[in-house]
Amino acid sequence: MVGRMSKRLKLHGFNNLTKSLSFNIYDICYARTEEHRSEYIEYIDEAYNANRLTQILTDVANIIGANVLDISRQDYDPQGASVTMLISEEPIATEKIGYTEEGPGPLPETVLAHLDKSHITVHTYPESHPQSGLSTFRADIDVSTCGRISPLRALNYLIHSFESDIVIMDYRVRGFTRDIRGKKHFIDHKITSIQNFLSKDTEERYQIMDVNVYQEYLFHTKMLLKNFDINNYLFGMGVNDYTPRELVRIEKLLKREMFEIFYGRNMNKT
């Protein structure tokens, strides 16, 4: 049984490893009135509707070299959208496609690779708090591939597609594949950190932290935008519409919200 399986692997080069990237982004703003909060949700729903998300995922499929087999998309009432895309392999274009060294992946460009039984999904979650004035947009994207290429190749494109205050990423290699002698291989490419696949401009813009479990091939990286300009966080109104004291309070509120999401715990109010 093992011999027949090894022979088939040798002939076809099929790779049973599943490489999954979970990519979560958060965009945060302050909207003082209920009207402004509703307008923020409407703005997000329009900016990241199912059609726009489909285009982003189609670009991801092109980057990792996949044929799109089927697309299911939905805009929800009152808010949010989802897209699920089934993808399959394209022919292997070059032996250099597989990851043997860590390094940033490209921005949008066509790359051919071997993929099978793969999918890409995205779900959006706009929400607002009626008392604090905080509004948060979250998008969850999962790219799962079987084959020689890692979905990390599309990471930089995804980061550039969603201008985000916080980015949380998980990458895991699951299952195993066998070589022609029957030996199991639980990973087929070098990785010490998701950070090593980020472009230089991303590294410069974000505070980055890792929590990795190397023996389980589980890599976790989260990023928090370094520079804070309150002008970028006021929706529906500008800095001239607030007193200096109000701006200090709003900045403290926004930063606490960001820190709580980044560290995954509630902080004491001061």
Rank of each mutant, 00 (worst) to 15 (best):
E95W: 02
D77C: 06
I97P: 06
H119S: 13
L112T: 13
A81K: 04
Y76P: 10
T94Y: 05
G105D: 03
E101K: 11
L107R: 14
A93Y: 00
G105Q: 09
E95D: 13
E101A: 11
P106G: 11
A81Q: 05
T84M: 13
G98W: 04
V83N: 00
G105H: 04
E89P: 01
T94W: 10
H114Y: 13
A81R: 00
T100A: 10
E109K: 12
E89L: 06
H119N: 04
K96M: 12
P78K: 05
I87Q: 06
S88C: 06
S82D: 13
S88K: 08
P78R: 00
I120V: 07
A113G: 01
K96N: 09
E90I: 09
E95S: 05
K96I: 12
T110M: 03
E95L: 04
L86P: 04
L86F: 13
P106H: 09
L115G: 04
P91T: 13
G98C: 13
T100C: 03
G98A: 11
Q79W: 07
E101H: 10
V111D: 08
T84W: 09
S118C: 15
P106A: 10
G103P: 11
T94M: 00
E90F: 06
I92V: 15
A81T: 07
I92H: 11
E102F: 05
S118D: 07
I120R: 02
L112I: 08
Y99H: 15
P78C: 07
A113R: 01
T100F: 14
G98S: 15
T110L: 02
T94R: 06
T84R: 07
V83W: 10
G103I: 08
T110R: 01
G105P: 04
L115W: 01
D116S: 03
L112K: 07
P78D: 03
E95G: 07
Y76G: 06
D116L: 07
V111A: 08
Q79K: 05
P106W: 01
K96L: 13
V83M: 04
L86Y: 01
I97Y: 04
G98N: 14
E109R: 09
G103F: 02
S88R: 03
S118N: 07
E89S: 10
G80N: 06
A113C: 01
H114M: 07
S118R: 03
G103R: 02
Y99E: 15
H114R: 08
K117R: 14
D77P: 09
L86N: 12
E89I: 03
D77S: 13
G103C: 09
E101N: 08
T84S: 15
E95T: 09
Q79P: 02
A113N: 05
T110Y: 05
Y76N: 11
L115P: 09
V111K: 00
S82C: 05
E102D: 12
A93F: 00
L112D: 02
T110I: 09
I92S: 12
